[in-house]
Design a protein around this nucleic acid. Structure first.
Lengths: 212, 212
DNA sequence: CCCATAAGTCAACATATGTTTACTTGCGGG
DNA sequence: CCCGCAAGTAAACATATGTTGACTTATGGG
């Protein structure tokens, strides 16, 4: 029924390869990962069905079990990928550019951006393994942020900074969810320009730059 | 099996009535509401089963359908209750006491506190009706907070304040979830004392008091 | 050119879950 | 005291969902 033939899409618009090789395990895996992250981030773990994900990715449901063992395994893979992505994007940000970086990535209209990675981090599957992974990602991220603002693991008054970094992280995650999942207006349609000012105030108030 | 007889609990410890009348529709309804709010806030809508809720409340599953029509209806009732509770607790807070109030209620060890009401507000059932209710609660709350800091509906530069109030709300919600659902340490075991300082910094930076 | 094998599909199954229907129980007014 | 009716219970049902195993098809080395 309306067989949708292979239709080589005559790549004219897309800058990316776009031409999907017809059978490519690695690419299929990645398609599933991307579709899953979006769904999990937006709707949560339990509300997302494996059939939804497979349909979004344009592949068969059974491949989820094949490539990721289970829905749970796919979720864990998404968390790990979010951890990598987070480390990559915020990794070499100069300490004083943190608010701009967060603002730019959170306001990113492309749904593939950091926004969905952040949202993903507060979704839980109830599974202990996944919870452990997420906790690790969050701890590492907050430590990274705290370190950029003067936190040193052992130092006495230093744990205050870590706590404040986690609060900043919480603010970023809450912001991402209220914007992209809940779609609260006017927050949801605020631009990067609108967000960067308040975000700078927020981060600087929570985490004053090391010396001034 | 192990019939758990009516066991009149010889009210010695509890300050509240505690002595449950054996058949009381209003009380049963409230028990269901409380149990549902806790579950929905902690685990999300889809991950919560009506049997979980009924068991927590100590009543039969069928009563959910009877009193709230459906799981969806119960969820909406929880959202409405959260809206009322939020208006009540933050309603008559003097504008300059906002951070303390938030800190006190978020740090509240009693799980019945504002913390779970806030967490509830980012859980979604996917139903349009529930989404509308939640959006209303969030909008009213942010407007209330914004008004305490100088926002006036029509005024030109005033929408900046509303945006910032929504960011503060997002921060509070993210904080509540990371603390109570995700249990991120050290954030999770931070006391009210630990939180009030950073929270004051956060709110004051985002929403400077009207005139200074 | 062929076919072994990896990549992908299909259909069935077991189970968990929201909801309903018929039944039982205890409370309170007459 | 007693019975009608509200409050509560138990079991069954339909469906949605994660997973599996047998089957089909394209691909690329020999």
């Amino acid at each position: 029924m309306t067989a949708e033939p292979p239709v080589p899409p005559s790549s004219d618009t897309a800058g990316e390869p776009a031409q999907r090789r017809r059978r490519d395990a690695a690419e299929t895996r990645q398609l599933l990962l991307d579709a899953a992250r979006q769904r999990f981030a937006r709707d949560g773990y339990a509300a997302t069905t494996v059939r939804d994900i497979a349909d979004d990715a344009g592949v068969n449901v059974a491949l989820i079990s094949r490539y990721f063992t289970s829905k749970e395994g796919l979720f864990e893979a998404c968390l790990r990928a979010a951890g990598d992505e987070l480390r990559r994007t915020t990794g070499q940000t100069p300490a004083d550019r943190v608010p701009e970086t967060i603002a730019r990535h959170i306001a990113d209209p492309a749904a593939a951006g950091l926004s969905s990675q952040l949202s993903l981090l507060l979704r839980s599957s109830g599974d202990a393994g996944a919870d452990e992974i997420r906790r690790g990602v969050l701890v590492r991220s907050s430590e990274q942020l705290a370190a950029a603002r003067g936190w040193r693991p052992g130092e006495p008054g230093s744990d205050q900074i870590l706590l404040r970094a986690q609060m900043a992280l919480a603010a970023g995650i809450g912001l991402a969810v209220l914007r992209s999942s809940i779609r609260l207006e006017p927050l949801s349609s605020a631009t990067e320009q609108d967000l960067v000012g308040p975000l700078r105030d927020l981060v600087d108030a929570l985490l004053p730059p090391p010396e001034s």
